[in-house]
Amino acid sequence: MYQAKAYSVSSATSAFAPTTISRREPTDTDVQIEILFCGICHSDLHQARNEWKEFMPTVYPCVPGHEIVGRVTKVGSSVAKFKVGDLAAVGCLVDTDRTCPECLAGLEQFCPNPTLTYNFPDKHTGGVTYGGYSDSVVVDERFVLRVPSNLDLAATAPLLCAGITTYSPMRHWGVTKGKKVGIVGLGGLGHMGVKFAHAFGAHTVVFTTSPNKKDDALRLGADEVVLSKDANDMAKHASSFDFILDAVSADHDLNAYIQLLRRDGTLTLVGAPEKPLPIAAFGLLFGRKSVSGSPIGGLPETQEMLDFCGDHNITSDVEVIPIQKVNEAYERLLKSDVKYRFSIDMASLKSE
């Protein structure tokens, strides 16, 4: 074991503060990574404040962070994919059972026995896993990803969650050139959805409640922007969408978007509203429409996504902050006061 610098919360109401945590020494199959940047995901906030205590109670101290980009500093004797000095990334998973049908199919995100990057039982230490708000991490080679060298590293970090969460459903439901795709909500997830839909060649339409987001949506790659509160504007697009990605986590009317789907169209949720949302059956029956959900992607697809981003120069729009401003960032995140993701520069941790 060795000691690593980190920022943690000690309770649901405490602020982040500097600390040291124990990391395992690399085994034969492990990669040790110096963390250069770590994105802040909204789920970090939920976990830090124990807002998911019903199904995923937080174990304190908690070190969040599952959007990790860094440089390899040590590799185990059996590691074949990485060498010291390589750029590397880690997302939401650091292990699975590796034997279930989902893992064997490269769909590790659906494994019934995963090990998440933080706040999950750690078989190596006997405690819980600690995430990327730290100066280093040790992860099995299988769960480490290659980072294209041409991408800005600070802006690459959010791809490990926000990126793959929006890329995966678009790939699964066949978003390609000639398709009409809607993106509901222009936030951390939605802005990545716009970039991917545009890169896939789809006619991309952003739905927003904020008129002042129109220019930014167009800058990100949208072909059209629809104000979802404008019934006439919505009606113009009835029965015309092949696919709609819903990235809103607040309470909202799904039926309004179901009406916009063409025959066999799909509305896929990647946001997670706190309360169940009602759906009118007739809206689905007439047109054989579907409502679905999608989490992150598996390891092969996440690597595919990173390579796609390298080929198309796609990254997240980020505001880079020092780790010392993480508490302020959380408060701003609650107010949606960021365009569009925070990325922590972990070099700032060296001064602690």
Rank of each mutant, 00 (worst) to 15 (best):
P61Q: 07
V63G: 01
V63M: 04
G65A: 05
E67K: 00
I68F: 09
I68H: 08
V69C: 05
G70V: 14
T73F: 13
K74S: 12
K74E: 10
S77E: 10
S78H: 13
V79R: 13
V79Y: 13
V84T: 12
L87F: 03
A89N: 05
A89Y: 03
V90T: 04
G91H: 12
L93I: 14
V94F: 02
D95H: 09
R98P: 00
C100S: 01
C100A: 02
C103W: 06
L104H: 14
L104C: 15
G106H: 06
G106L: 10
L107R: 14
E108P: 14
Q109E: 15
C111D: 01
C111F: 04
N113A: 11
N113K: 09
N113R: 09
P114A: 10
P114N: 09
T117M: 08
Y118R: 08
Y118E: 07
N119G: 12
P121R: 08
D122T: 06
D122R: 03
K123I: 14
G127R: 08
Y130E: 09
G132Y: 11
G132N: 12
Y133N: 06
Y133M: 13
D135Q: 11
S136K: 11
V139T: 06
F143N: 03
V144Q: 04
R146E: 11
V147N: 04
P148W: 01
S149G: 11
L151C: 02
A154I: 03
P158E: 04
P158A: 05
L159F: 06
L159T: 04
A162C: 09
I164P: 01
I164L: 01
T165V: 08
T166P: 06
S168C: 13
P169T: 10
M170N: 07
H172M: 13
W173R: 10
W173I: 10
G174D: 15
V175Y: 05
V175Q: 09
V175A: 13
T176K: 15
T176F: 10
T176C: 09
T176Q: 15
K177E: 08
G178P: 14
K179G: 05
K179D: 07
K179N: 01
K179A: 05
V181S: 10
L186K: 02
L189Y: 05
